[in-house]
Design a protein around this nucleic acid. Structure first.
Length: 414
DNA sequence: AATCCACAGGAAGCCCGGGAAC
DNA sequence: GTTCCCGGGCTTCCTGTGGATT
């Protein structure tokens, strides 16, 4: 009886998702709305080697979630297709410099991609060889057969920040060392200032062609969401205005399509849990709160410990029901907390800065008020619920071990 | 008008860890 | 290895300030 009920419940549940993979950021869609311009530019540049000309290198810039990676991957796939039709060998190699972030690793990865595509696995080990030997090996495997190779360096700023630009220097001038094969390098970055750190030679070579990916506006986001939603959701499960609302939220955050898709997916998951068979704007609203809250919790967890202690002081005062929390009160509470926890006590000046930082991060809000004769100070309010804040803060050892027995008494003496 | 509170927030410099240059 | 430099966290010292109070 019981068991039957459980299964019936699941059977009767109307499925929301057809395939939620389409909403994940890793998925590369077939069509990329509002990126025609960029696709066109890329194609114009990349077609050169197919005509036997030396290709330009390309630098791509755009904020997160503006479709840089997806567009490049798409164009390269198309390029490989056309190459096959023309009986020319075209190979795209994708390197994410966030993981592959040294000269050695980049070269090794490239060799292994080239050789692996050729015949079985017999490549360069991930460590051990002298880097120059890997470079030679790279040159030889490139030139072994005539072909066009497009090397995509995603998040290339990470590589340079950690390592300097010597690999990029290798890559951008590699064409002069090759007889038959032609190489084009595409660098992708979301930091526009990144090129200023480059060696001028690399800079001019990589920046031969520059493509900018502007943020999406709300209307464009709506198109993107609609297209993905038609693949991801079952028909007629999306309520009125759901997509518009997701698009509007993401548009406010510098047009990040990834966040828009995230929002839509979380809304769908919430609706699934509700088992009403329908995603409503209310779900989006809750999804937005959840996503924001997750972000905030993560932010608090990664705060430096002194900031956490200051925040903890604000929390305790809030929990005690203080209605006007001022800088002075926070400092006094903070001082006692530190002392009872055996932690160094910072000066009021520094704590004042920490309070301002917390304000900037949006964890608290402050307002400058003047009580005339009774001085000028900041009034402080928490921007998140005390319960959640406590949960996030208590993961920190230095706070969870603070003497909970003596502290409340000390604070009530204030 | 002068005073004065309770801070805000600027300026300069100390300390320390880490990375580059020698 | 040593030395140098840099940046971030922090302290010290400082000047500035809106408005109730005198």
């Amino acid at each position: 009886m019981e068991h039957e009920g459980i299964f019936r419940m699941w059977l009767e549940r109307k499925p929301i998702f057809k395939n939620r993979e389409y909403l994940r950021p890793t998925y590369t869609p077939e069509r990329l709305p509002h990126r025609e311009e960029q696709i066109h530019q890329l194609a114009r540049i990349l077609v050169a080697p197919l005509r036997g000309e030396t290709p330009s290198n390309i630098f791509i810039y755009g904020k997160t979630g503006t479709g840089k990676t997806a567009t490049v991957k798409y164009v390269i796939k198309e390029l490989e297709k056309v190459g096959k039709e023309l009986q020319r060998r075209v190979e795209g190699i994708y390197v994410n410099c966030e993981m592959v972030n040294t000269r050695y690793r980049v070269l090794a990865t490239l060799v292994n991609c080239l050789v692996g595509g050729d015949r079985g696995a017999r490549g360069v080990p991930m460590t051990g060889w002298p880097t120059d030997a890997v470079y030679d090996c790279f040159l030889r495997s490139l030139d072994s057969t005539e072909r066009v190779v497009v090397i995509v360096m995603d998040e290339v700023d990470r590589l340079v920040a950690k390592n300097g630009d010597d690999v990029l220097y290798d890559l951008t001038r590699i064409n002069s060392e090759l007889r038959s094969t032609k190489v084009s390098v595409i660098g992708i970055s979301n930091d526009a200032r990144f090129t200023t750190y480059l060696d001028p030679r690399v800079k001019s070579s990589l920046g031969e062609e520059e493509i900018v990916f502007p943020p999406y506006n709300a209307i464009q986001l709506k198109d993107i969401l609609e297209q993905r939603a038609s693949e991801a959701f079952n028909p007629r499960v999306l309520g009125e205005g759901v997509i518009q609302l997701c698009a509007a939220h993401a548009a406010r955050e510098h047009g990040d399509a990834r966040r828009a898709l995230d929002l839509l997916r979380v809304a769908g998951e919430l609706a699934e849990r509700d088992n009403t068979g329908m995603v409503t704007v209310e779900h989006v609203r809750r999804a937005y709160e959840k996503v924001e809250q997750d972000k905030m919790m993560e932010l608090i967890r990664t705060l430096p410990s002194q900031s956490k202690l200051v925040l903890y002081s604000v929390l305790l005062l809030t929990e005690k029901g203080r209605n006007r929390i001022t800088t002075g009160e926070v400092y006094e509470a903070y001082r006692r907390i530190c002392r009872s926890g055996g932690v160094d006590v910072l000066t009021p000046r520094r704590v004042s800065d920490l309070i301002s930082e917390l304000d900037m991060l949006g964890v608290i809000s402050t307002q400058l008020i003047s009580s005339g004769r009774y001085g000028r100070t900041k009034e402080i309010v928490l921007n998140i619920s005390p319960v959640q804040l406590r949960a996030a803060l208590q993961e920190d050892d230095s706070i969870s071990t603070i003497d909970v027995l003596t502290l409340p008494r000390q604070l009530t003496l204030m």
